[in-house]
Each structure stands twice: as structure tokens, then as C-alpha cells.
Design a protein around this nucleic acid. Structure first.
Length: 257
DNA sequence: ATGTCGACGGAGCGTCGA
């Protein structure tokens, strides 16, 4: 099971790059975030014609998540918080060779600034996610929870811990909240295999952050114990940030046997 | 803190969100 996750910051702008990734990487599953399109306006034909199944949970202008899979996609659910209108969640089963994987795709709210109402929504999202992951871990399938967490978890995951203490994507309250998933037994695939590697998954478009490598690792693939037992590889392809008209995020990968 | 993006409304560029 070769899986990748990518915040594309508009699927319309990044369709060519996504097709390029699908062609060059032998992915079973690709999870996308920040589609910035409605479900109806997603480029289904362009992806499906490459031999993939596609499920989309979209929204006008903002957010939006999708699951792209070579294999059957079943039991899709897109509701995490009752009454929430923002398209940030998709859970499904992917069946490869009669083996089921439970896959959760998240686009965690950015949170604006740390003392804003939006940051309360971010906390609420994490609480709901934790509750759902707690329940989903009870099933027999290996569980993968991947996407844009909008939080870097540890000092090694950012270019400058000191400069980012007040950032909503590195604030200690948000890091603690996200780390509660570890308390349930989930593990960070990348960090399991690269204890000391400082590789980022996002760089601000502004202030030549990419050129200076001022980035953060805010995209994660978390694995349940059953999935950890199958983990072979975890890596980040930073070179996608060098493409013309890149997303501000790059895709992250893991391979389970 | 913000020098950049992308979508939108409406048709030029300001606003929102990140």
C-alpha cells in the first residue's frame, strides 16, 4: 500500500502536477486537501481516465478533500462535527487484494491567530478527530489518518521554534492538542523512520521562505499500531516546491507492506 | 510581521483566507 497526501491549494491550478505525480509514483491512494472547488466542478474525468477511482467532498472557494485510489473505495463518510459546513474530512475503506485499510483524510483548520474564534474551531476539530480516531481504532483494519494538520508537533519540525512560539501552527496549546492522538496509540510515520531528519512539508509563499528553507512540517501521516507493523517507508518529496506555480505544500508518502 | 498566492465578484482590483 503506497499512499501519499498533498495539500494542493486549488486542484484546478495543480491538476497538471497531480497528474504528473500519479504518472511517476505508483500510488495506491492519493489524498488531497484544499481543493477550493465544489464537488461538481472537480476534474473527475482527468483523474478517472488515468485508471483511478475518485471520491470528492468539495465546497465553493475554500477547503475540500478528495480520495483517489486504484482500488475500490467504500463506506465513505464526510461528517466529523455535526452541523459543520466546511469540507475538511473524508473517511473511507480502501480494499486492496481483499485487505481493507481504513483511511481518514483531514484538512485541519488553520486557526487564524491563536486568540481568535477560528482557533477555537481548530481545537474543536481536533477534539472531534480524536474522538473519531479513538472509535475507528477499535476496528480490525489498519488505520491511516493523513493530511494537513496545520500544526508542527515538535521543535525539529520547524525552522525556528523561537520565532514561531506565537504561531497558531506551532503554539504549545495546538501541539499538545494534536499530540493527544499519540496518546491513543497513533504514530507519525515519517518520524518513526527518520528520528533526526529536519524536512518540511510547507513553506510560506511570502518572504522567500522556500529559498531560505524557512518551513514547517505540518502535513502528517499517522498510523495505528496495526499499520505501524506494516510500515516500510516514509518520505517527503520537497522538489515539488520547485515547480512553476507550485502549491505551498509538497506531497508526503508512506509505504506499508 | 508579512514582501505571495488563489477564489470571488464582476469586469478592476479590493477582500478574504491561508
Amino acid at each position: 500500500m503506497q499512499l501519499a497526501s498533498w495539500n494542493v491549494n486549488s486542484i484546478k491550478k495543480r491538476l497538471g502536477l497531480v497528474q504528473c505525480l500519479l504518472k511517476k509514483s505508483n500510488l495506491d491512494v492519493l489524498l488531497l486537501q484544499e481543493l477550493k472547488c465544489t464537488t461538481d466542478s472537480f476534474p473527475f474525468l482527468e483523474i478517472e481516465s488515468m485508471g483511478y477511482n475518485v471520491r470528492v467532498h468539495g465546497e465553493k472557494s475554500y477547503n475540500g478533500v478528495a480520495c483517489i485510489s486504484k482500488h475500490a473505495i467504500e463506506d465513505v463518510r464526510t461528517s466529523l462535527i455535526f452541523g459543520d459546513t466546511q469540507a475538511r474530512y473524508m473517511e473511507c475503506l480502501v480494499i486492496k487484494n481483499e485487505k481493507a485499510f481504513r483511511i481518514i483524510n483531514v484538512y485541519v483548520p488553520n486557526g487564524g491567530s491563536i486568540d481568535s474564534k477560528n482557533s477555537l474551531y481548530k481545537i474543536k476539530f481536533f477534539d472531534a478527530l480524536q474522538e473519531r480516531v479513538h472509535d475507528a481504532m477499535e476496528y480490525d483494519e489498519p488505520l491511516i489518518v493523513a493530511g494537513d494538520y496545520n500544526v508542527a508537533l515538535y521543535d525539529i519540525d520547524v525552522y525556528s521554534p523561537a520565532r514561531l512560539t506565537d504561531s497558531v501552527c506551532f503554539h504549545i496549546s495546538m501541539r499538545r492538542k494534536a499530540r493527544e492522538l499519540f496518546g491513543l496509540g497513533m504514530r507519525d510515520a515519517f518520524r518513526l523512520l527518520h528520528a533526526n531528519e529536519r524536512t518540511f512539508s510547507w513553506w510560506d509563499y511570502r518572504a522567500s521562505a522556500w529559498r531560505s528553507n524557512r518551513g514547517m512540517r505540518i502535513d502528517n501521516i499517522l498510523l495505528s499500531p496495526l499499520a505501524v507493523d506494516m510500515l516500510d517507508k516514509a518520505y517527503i518529496e520537497t522538489f515539488w516546491r520547485n515547480e512553476s506555480e507550485p502549491s505551498d505544500h509538497v506531497p508526503i508518502f508512506c509505504k506499508l507492506h
